[in-house]
Design a protein around this nucleic acid. Structure first.
Lengths: 252, 252
DNA sequence: CGGTTGCTTGAGATCCATCAATAGGAGTGG
DNA sequence: CCACTCCTATTGATGGATCTCAAGCAACCG
């Protein structure tokens, strides 16, 4: 565990493969196939990557940087429905809608891959291990979406934020982008407000409460969770155990 | 279109097939394959079907009745994250989590099919039309989940409820379970509260507001939307056009 | 430097939650 | 048929979580 950090540098193994490794037992040849996917990289600036109503043909895979999905309402309000970090697929891997119901934007300069769903599907069809890993990843994304709904519906502002920090800490750790209890967090308070259905003012006050409780500190767009256990307790965060991975087979 | 209603009675064509027909051009042989899936029906009573933490092996397909997915929090609060009606798959078709993160319950007596994901996957692999239809269905479920988040985060109580009635009206019409502007709605006000992160008292008052505006009437667990257009306007509901179906191919 | 962006703070308004009580219907048992 | 309970819908009063408006401040940047 500790030794692998030196062997597999961030450059050599993409976070996507790194994440899928935890979902299924991939062979070196599987990883080679997946590595090919990430050759079609494209750099994007901060701002919209795809806009609602676009005729999209590709699945977006995040390589570097942070990306989020949102919907802009007629009345000017905005709701962010998901946040993606390196290694994440921004849509289900098997198909794209003809017309997008949401927009996709980069929080900062990012590197993305645009993969045709047909390509991903044919790889999955030909390779059961990759197929299982992709489905596991899809299910985990679904779990995150449900947790987000729980936050929006039934948690207080401090709990929503605390839960989110715990979640990002876990997700970033899984792809090697956390430094112990510290990680980058490029979201502004306005972004957090639109993510959790709050006002920016209230996000500010809730963050102050977490900081004064000693559960969070932020400096230069980096967050530190000095007491992860206490923060998880406060925000009712249940860590996802790798044993809970998805399965395709119906064997016991 | 109009004639088919007499030819295909509710008994002869399952709502599942009826829905998938709208997603992709299915041949009679495809429908025969899908009809086999629905042979393993099981009747369930009102109440939990699967409980959080269960070791689930099958995908649940709704035949008759209403089903919902929810999470029960430590502090006693409940959040309903999705509502399913006949024809709906309650999970992504390709895999199941080893351990469920949520519970599934029937609102009333229901008829369900429990389908192993491996079976669905092998059918999809062998049949590109069914595969496309299943992916379309999965994407549409995702769109509904996002709309739900928008409601939870950025809509007023009356808007959330109005939007939901519009959505259910559209979904039930698609499977032939709406009678013009009227349809069954077996949710109690407590259920609606847990679906939208509100208190039951406030749901009650918001419903009264909709009724006094002439946008809704309810009697005996049946809802009528006398002014669908006005209700859609109020709740910022955008109907889903069939043209927006998902696609796997990357052709223009 | 002026302009922009993001963070912070205060005061008052609003949406919604909570508590408490009533009433009607559906089922149940005597 | 009645008494009883449970569930659901309803109403009023009060309080709390959060919003909106408004202003000030710091950091960055061309």
């Amino acid at each position: 565990m500790t030794a692998s950090a030196t062997i597999t540098s961030r450059q050599s193994v993409s976070p996507f493969i790194r994440k899928l490794r935890q979902e299924a037992a991939l062979l070196p040849e599987d990883e080679a196939i997946l590595a090919d996917l990430t050759n079609s990289k494209r750099s994007v600036e901060r701002g919209d990557v795809l806009r609602e109503g676009a005729h999209q043909r590709s699945i977006v895979l995040v390589f570097e940087g942070w990306v989020y999905r949102y919907r802009q309402l007629e009345n000017g309000k905005r709701q962010i429905t998901a946040v993606f970090v390196p290694g994440d697929l921004c849509q289900p891997f098997g198909a794209t809608p003809r017309v997008l119901d949401h927009s996709l934007a980069a929080l900062n300069a990012a590197v993305l891959s645009f993969v045709p769903p047909r390509l991903l599907l044919s790889i999955a069809h030909a390779n059961p291990r990759i197929e299982e890993a992709l489905w596991c990843d899809l299910l985990k994304t679904d779990v995150l979406a449900r947790e987000h709904m729980v936050s929006l519906g039934r948690r207080l502002a401090t709990e929503r934020l605390g839960h989110f920090f715990c979640e990002m800490h876990e997700r970033l750790t899984a792809v090697g982008l956390a430094d112990g209890d510290t990680f980058d967090l490029p979201l502004t308070q306005v972004d957090l407000a639109d993510l959790f259905g709050l006002s920016a003012v209230h996000v500010n006050r809730a963050l102050q409460e977490l900081r004064s409780s000693g559960l969070l500190s932020m400096r230069n767009r980096r967050a530190t969770l000095p007491e992860v256990a206490a923060l998880r307790e406060l925000s009712m965060f249940n860590p996802a155990y790798p044993q809970q991975n998805a399965v395709i087979s119906d064997r016991a």
